[in-house]
């Protein structure tokens, strides 16, 4: 069943066109990785789906319903949650407050307790200000904060950025647990190996366009790499 559909989406920053006519669908329970070089439009695409960026053209559909004119906070109650690039925690709020402020009325498995269970490293830091956490802890709070709304669609933007490899491993271990429970996830990841590992399907963007799409298992690495860098540009 299709949960999210993106149709001919165009996103612009003034004259700069960041996303050009992108269309794809994400089914219930799928994990899709968006890959591509810096500036390919991945972050903009996620922000447009979450409602933080108003697209110039095209549509975003959730359960077949057009949500283009819906502000970001209402999309959260529809079940879309974005872990933004750079984490964007509320630094002056404690870990607990960061989580509790994001709690929604949507019923589901996630609460402060269950988030702390999945990210045990946060347990002793509950009363610490988010600004005083380490990078890994901050990323855990950012993911936990998104989970607090019990999303049906989780959007993850570069969760490994700026983290030590060991910490990235820990974050991804927790994530694969969440994905294993049947969550629908769209993630942006710079690390190709990791993206292919976690995702069932891969969409590669180049200069705002989809240049390659396929099952992660069926794609060979060379094809992905050349699409990623635009070595063999489709005519």
């Amino acid at each position: 069943m299709t949960l999210l559909a993106v149709e001919k989406l165009d996103c612009r920053y003034g004259l700069l066109q960041a996303v050009r006519g992108v269309s794809f669908e994400v089914g219930q329970g799928e994990t899709v990785a968006l890959i591509g070089a810096n500036g390919a439009g991945k972050t903009t695409l996620l922000r447009a789906i979450a409602g933080a960026h108003r697209p110039h053209g095209g549509r975003v559909l959730m359960d077949g319903a057009d949500i283009n004119s819906m502000p970001a906070h209402r999309r959260v109650s529809r079940g879309i949650a974005l872990v933004p690039e750079g984490r964007r925690l509320f630094g002056g709020l404690t870990v607990m407050e960061n989580l509790r402020v994001a709690a929604s009325r949507r019923p589901g498995r996630w609460s402060v307790d269950s988030v702390l269970e999945v990210f045990p490293m946060l347990q002793p830091r509950r009363r610490a200000l988010a600004a005083n956490l380490s990078g890994g802890e901050q990323q855990a709070v950012a993911i936990g904060r998104a989970l607090m709304s019990n999303p049906r669609l989780l959007l993850l933007d570069e969760v490994s950025l700026g983290l030590a490899p060991v910490v990235v491993d820990a974050v991804y271990r927790s994530l694969s647990g969440i994905i294993g429970e049947g969550a629908t996830v769209v993630l942006v990841e710079q690390d190709l190996t990791r993206a292919l590992e976690v995702a069932g399907r891969v969409i590669c963007l180049l200069e705002g366009r989809v240049v390659l799409e396929g099952r992660a298992a069926s794609l060979d690495r060379d094809r992905v790499v050349s699409a990623y860098f635009g070595l063999k540009r489709p005519a």
Partner: peptide, 12 residues
């Protein structure tokens, strides 16, 4: 602190 991020966690 961050109105944009607040919107993204469901705050109007």
């Amino acid at each position: 602190e961050d109105a944009d991020a607040a919107e993204l966690v469901g705050i109007n």
